[in-house]
Design a protein around this nucleic acid. Sequence first.
DNA 1: TCCGTAAAAGGACAATTGTCCCAATTCTTT
DNA 2: AAAGAATTGGGACAATTGTCCTTTTACGGA
Lengths: 212, 212
Amino acid sequence: MLRTNLPLLNFIEEYSQQHSGVETRTYTAGQTFIQQGSEITTVQFLVSGITKCYILEENGKDYIFEFLGKGEVVGDIEAIRQEKCLCNITAITEVQTLVIHRSLFNSLLQNYPAFNAMIMQELATRISQTCTRSAYQQLYPVEYALLRVLTLENEQQIFLSKKDLAAYLGITLRSFNRTVKQLRQEKILDAEELQLGISRQALLKILNQFDE
Amino acid sequence: MLRTNLPLLNFIEEYSQQHSGVETRTYTAGQTFIQQGSEITTVQFLVSGITKCYILEENGKDYIFEFLGKGEVVGDIEAIRQEKCLCNITAITEVQTLVIHRSLFNSLLQNYPAFNAMIMQELATRISQTCTRSAYQQLYPVEYALLRVLTLENEQQIFLSKKDLAAYLGITLRSFNRTVKQLRQEKILDAEELQLGISRQALLKILNQFDE
DNA sequence: TCCGTAAAAGGACAATTGTCCCAATTCTTT
DNA sequence: AAAGAATTGGGACAATTGTCCTTTTACGGA
């Protein structure tokens, strides 16, 4: 849910100590620093903070693909495919990044096998996770996906707005609230059955945060 | 919708003429030649035919990620991440493939920059397309996605079962039929508004195939 | 040729989800 | 401190989608 990639961050940090061409940037919470459809010529690596990566359609609805954390890259796909941005990236907390030019990114890919392998790994992981997640969301009732997301949020100790969680699940805020309420009251589904790796007790605790 | 990758196929075919380690296989229509969750040690390139790539959950429902055609790879993600299969691959028509061992795939990645770049490109494209598609399906009413899919099917001159189309759209067969009927009868949405790059006339024609 | 199976189409009803509200609470910011 | 703007929670109703079931047609094998 909140993806990270520490090895990648290590690589870039080390590289930046020995070479030029790497810049530091800081964004404040709420700032959208990459806009879908716009031209982009840089690749950025998240050093700290949390961002959301999402598509916003003309009808005002948005769909969040991922929450990105430490070590994750943005702009890589666009650099490889030489195309315009496909997603928006907005800082949820304050965010610090390391920025390199697209051309440097591509030359790193060619000249540093270790870097190449890490990016290859990163892309493969993204595909794998995206597949698993979208299948899960399509094929199971919302309750299941919702419980999973809340569990993950809890595990990783991050705090996201309800609105963002709903957008991540591909449902409306209203549906989100409704489902949480239902789960809190009625029968909680079997934690085992859900394969969440969490006890029924812990689940209840998470849900009751909403009661306060 | 039906993805292909001719450059990649060219590369592998040329390689196979000069080296050993590449085998040919044929699968009959309907055959599932890669099973989710199973161990796999090969990577395959589609030479001819059409396959579907999907996840099947225990509740019997399935979700199709992509239809794969000429030049597409399967098993690559698994080779890169060294993990079990995440999807099922089933031949829709008769299918021919070129098979290489996982270790050969990885050594090609390391020793042939051109191959490396092609795979990098392929992964980036998959991510890009997956993002666009899943956002589209989440954020617009089914009619829109359905029309788009039918248009694509028509353009590419492929023929898929209604069941597969529904699984691709993440809806039930019943919903699929219902929506087609509605569109056929009532107002067809503006073709321009949909940005399908197809005229209203042509759309009607496609929908009326169902009437016959 | 006949049978069994799969694909296609749709009726009827139940369940889910979205839309449009409104109210309470918590922030920012001036 | 007060005003305005988000965030959260939920009622009421409409629209959409799923489930279950039946019918018709098409197709391949015995």
